[in-house]
Design a binder for these strands. Structure first.
Lengths: 216, 216
DNA sequence: GTTAGCATGTAAGGAGTTACATGATTTT
DNA sequence: AAAATCATGTAACTCCTTACATGCTAAC
């Protein structure tokens, strides 16, 4: 058991590799496209992470021994290995599911929430709901805290600090409204098919279109 | 020269101690009230920071040899020292001004921006403007990036990822609008008094409507 | 008289970040 | 052949986080 990497990166990498195998460089771009708004990772973060996921057996180097079965014949699969393509192992899939099944603090704090939401498509419906509600509660606590602090120190705040708090508050309120909509929508579609069980596994309505990666 | 502490904490501590001397415990509360929305620090972060600022001579333990001059007689100022009250030294003030005069990346990235904005009252008017504009530019770059990524990968995004990006984009757009207002307001009040120098302190023109927050 | 909050710290470590180093391949 | 970009990595470092340890003081 090496160092336990338990951050955003691990989850994001596993999640992306679940879609399709990839090499590091491409992974990084997809990563930053996926998380775009909140976060960006450099190679200095990614490669050590890959190294450790490899050591833990959660991912593996893909060695394509079989002849054809090329999904994308557009790019010539290099005979020599300058690229190292990684794929998710069975253990990796398990680990991914474990991570996506957490509905505790890690899942509703700022960073964790973003990634997990991005992979809601792989997450069980009841967990989705729990995470959304957990985050909403968390944000409401934060609102209470800030409002209390503002009320307490009302007089001696200069206009900039006040403006900062006003804007921050509005941002959080906005996210709460967003969450409310999402929760409502989840509840609706959860009860939709009249069945009492919300179905065990996630249903893939992922249509099998070929993945042509229009690189920038 | 010891380790260079150059993060959010140092600036926030120096900024708060500029207002009035304080001891650690209180400082931490004011800190989290000030930054409320974005960030929270624990004692495990604060005390080591104080220790080092002390070592660098930027702050000093306040030994009140003079008799009266108590600002708040409500609490009995303890005779024995269970509290350690810190004050800003002259060097500390200088360092604070240096930090608040930066208008580079450190000042417009997420974390740095928040703290600096909170202390805009201590910041020169031209620097304020540069920081606001720098941040706006930064956010616009981010918008471009995300929009490009969305356009590139349009088809094969599941609805959750899409929704995440949509919401992230709106948040950033909202902040850009906020910055636009702030910049306009800065420009206006900067050129207002017809004098070439835009005056030292910020004036409060915040209209005094009472802020009742209409929750849903 | 014991919980709750005030007050100060330390040791270990996590999760990336920054800067650097290197080579292959494609474009101009 | 020069420049850009693809592609992979490492070492050192930073800035904080978590968990722990300790005493005092005020409230119930």
């Amino acid at each position: 058991m090496g160092g336990h990497r338990s951050g955003v990166l691990e989850l994001a990498v596993l999640g992306l590799l679940h879609e399709t195998p990839m090499h590091g460089y491409e992974l990084r771009k997809r990563l930053n496209a996926l998380l775009g708004a909140f976060r960006a990772f450099g190679y200095g973060s990614l490669y050590p992470c890959l190294k450790e996921l490899l050591a833990q057996g959660l991912i593996a180097e893909e060695s394509p021994p079989g002849p054809a079965a090329g999904t994308a014949p557009a790019k010539p699969l290099a005979g020599r290995r300058s690229k190292i393509v990684y794929r998710l192992t069975a253990e990796g899939k398990e680990r991914l599911q474990d991570l996506l099944s957490e509905s505790g603090p890690a899942a509703w704090e700022d960073d964790g929430f973003g990634v997990r939401f991005a992979f809601f498509g792989l997450t069980r419906a009841d967990i989705r709901l729990r995470i959304l509600e957990g985050r909403r509660t968390r944000l409401e606590e934060r609102l209470d805290g800030v409002r209390a602090a503002m009320a307490r120190t009302r007089e001696r705040l200069d206009s900039y600090t006040l403006e900062l708090h006003r804007h921050g508050l509005e941002s959080v309120e906005r996210e709460v409204r967003w969450l409310n909509e999402l929760i409502a929508s989840e509840r609706e579609s959860g009860q939709d098919p009249a069945g009492p069980r919300p179905a065990g596994g996630p249903q893939h309505q992922h249509d099998p279109q070929q993945d042509h990666i229009t690189e920038e």
